[in-house]
Design a binder for these strands. Structure first.
Lengths: 265, 265
DNA sequence: TGAGAAGTCACCCGATTAATCACAAAAAGG
DNA sequence: CCTTTTTGTGATTAATCGGGTGACTTCTCA
């Protein structure tokens, strides 16, 4: 939603630092010091857009994080740790947070949740849809039927399919061109290809999937099929779970028909 | 400064989620849904402390993150992804941010920075001091002299010393008890131990270090040497760099005297 | 048709923070 | 030694954001 590669590195760095929890002044000060290496409040104020009198607060904040050291002289001088050390520090800090979160969440989960028989859920955004797809792949026990346009068949999806294949899950794939098929066959030896009866790529459909005949997902590219493929927000999906779930019933009918009438590879 | 292990998991999880950029309502909603699995606005409002009318906003926010799916019915029902998937998602997202930051910072660094001859820098906090120590260890080329109280000789420091040892850096260690010495000798075969003339552990000193005779650091435990050792904020250090740096000059004199008069192991 | 629940919207208020200013202490320079 | 500039600290203001509450419409079900 934000990080633009064509931006000046100062802006990009500042933005990321802010998202890590630094104030804008602190972020800008850090970036300024990162290029200066060492400097006084005035130096920092000049290269960054931070008011001189606020540099001191910003440095205090950075000092709290252990990112900047202060020389008690007049004028005070400020020193930054190497950018690489800073990045590693953030990574370490974050990993710690993630671990804390994981254990905390693991200690919850008392309420038992049974699969919903009724209801159709919506998912927005390329990343979220892919995530859901991956999650469903990993829960598959017997069969995965998956139709997709080729752009959406990314490496991580293939990996998950390959993993399922090794787990003994039967995999049926459609929608990919014949040259890609060969390549897939190598990575997922157990996969079966089938031709879609529809001219799949001409519709605005994205993926269509069924897991164990009881969990289905279908997605569409909301802005048509053109340049929007690169737009991560352009995909919307709905999914449902349970033998009697309406979406599941409908899609199961379609898929069964497809699989029966399609030519097999 | 915050994460307390003895806290209820709900609070801990909420706190972490907030630090990842979620609003408090969104965080609490997520935690509620994580234990419910699925639920309506009222359900969420009851188990969490979120006003019912605001659950919708919170869910919107979570939906943006791809953490929650929404069923368009009345009442609306909300579904969360598995906690494990959520954690992985955060980790992936964060790694991406860290990479962005790293490249952005890497594209800066135009101003050349030479080692400061003058000035003494201050560092506060256990983690920051350790970080600085590690950084200095890695830049060592010839010699590391390091006195420390035993509590502060953590595994990562030993690793860094061991790495320096393999790089051919001469290592001189003091302050550790004789039984720990043996264990250290195994991990860092090239290390030389020497006895401190002071009763090191009775002072409030923490570490004392010299790198290549031109970079020094000394730390103190600010609240005495008792229970404060466990308090990460209780350590303060100063350091200096350069042949003529005053701190370096002083410490070099001390160390040389120490090394000359001490008994060798 | 009416009661209650569900969903949406708008508003208030307090906290945070960016931004500016005023002022005292300290260097610098004649 | 005094003046001027620079430096550091603190107070103040303005604006934004987010938590909290309630009004109001819509929907569901008896």
């Amino acid at each position: 939603m934000s990080s633009n590669p064509s931006k000046e590195p100062e802006t990009a760095a500042t933005e990321q630092l802010e998202r890590f929890g630094l104030s804008t002044y602190a972020a800008r000060t850090f970036v300024a010091l990162a290029s200066l290496g060492t400097g006084t409040a005035r130096d920092v104020s000049q290269v960054s857009e931070v008011p001189r009198t606020r540099v001191y607060d910003a440095v205090d904040e950075l000092h709290e994080w252990g990112l900047v050291d202060v020389q008690q002289s007049s004028p005070k001088e400020f020193w930054v740790i190497s950018t690489e050390t800073a990045c590693r520090r953030f990574e370490r800090d974050f990993q710690h947070r993630a671990d804390t979160l994981r254990t905390a969440l693991g200690e919850l989960e008392p309420a038992e949740q049974q699969a919903e028989q009724r209801g159709v859920w919506t998912v927005n955004g390329r990343a979220a849809v892919t995530d859901r797809t991956l999650e469903f792949f990993t829960t598959a026990e017997e069969e995965i039927v998956y139709m997709t346009i080729e752009n959406l068949l990314t490496e991580d999806l293939i990996d998950a399919l390959s993993e399922a294949d090794e787990r003994g899950v039967s995999i049926k794939l459609a929608g990919v061109s014949s040259d890609v098929q060969e390549q897939i066959q190598e990575e997922i030896p157990g996969a079966t290809m089938f031709e879609s009866l529809w001219v799949w790529s001409d519709t605005s459909a994205g993926r269509l999937m069924m897991i164990d005949g009881r969990k289905t997902l279908v997605s569409a590219l909301v802005n048509g099929e053109g340049a929007s493929v690169s737009d991560p927000r352009s995909e919307t999906a709905i999914w449902g779970e349970g033998e009697t779930n309406s979406l599941v019933v409908v899609l199961k009918a379609i898929f069964t028909w497809q699989l029966d009438s399609a030519e097999w590879d």
